[in-house]
Amino acid sequence: MAAQIPIVDYLVLGDQPHLTAHECTSCGARYFDRRNACANCSGTDFRHVNIATDGEVRAFTIVTFAAPGVKVPFVSSIVDFDGTSARGNIINVEPTPEHISLGMKVKLATYSLGTDDTGTEAIGFGFEPINN
């Protein structure tokens, strides 16, 4: 199998792809990027935690006009994964207000961004509706 690389370092690939965060060991605040100290309590000790892969849409927008090079339309969203909020696109859905609703249940899904000259495939992630 060709090598894979995640679009961002907080996406963990493998059999069960998931997001990971730096959690402050003193107050529990979570961050997707590396931290010098905690924005909430100034603690400097962090541990890795895995983020739940099923969540609920807390906010979304359907972007139809974007910067050059950004493919539209796409659905941007803020999703609550068991108390940790994450940002990402809602994928595998019609990008229209009729097909997306606040409070809808979604789960993490991955897709290919393409392969580079060295044969490495980049993997992106999004949130897709859970069909009940």
Partner: peptide, 18 residues
Amino acid sequence: YGAVASTDGRIGTDSMPG
């Protein structure tokens, strides 16, 4: 974030209207 591609449009939106 160790991003290998622009995240605007791929991981949500950076645009102010969005």
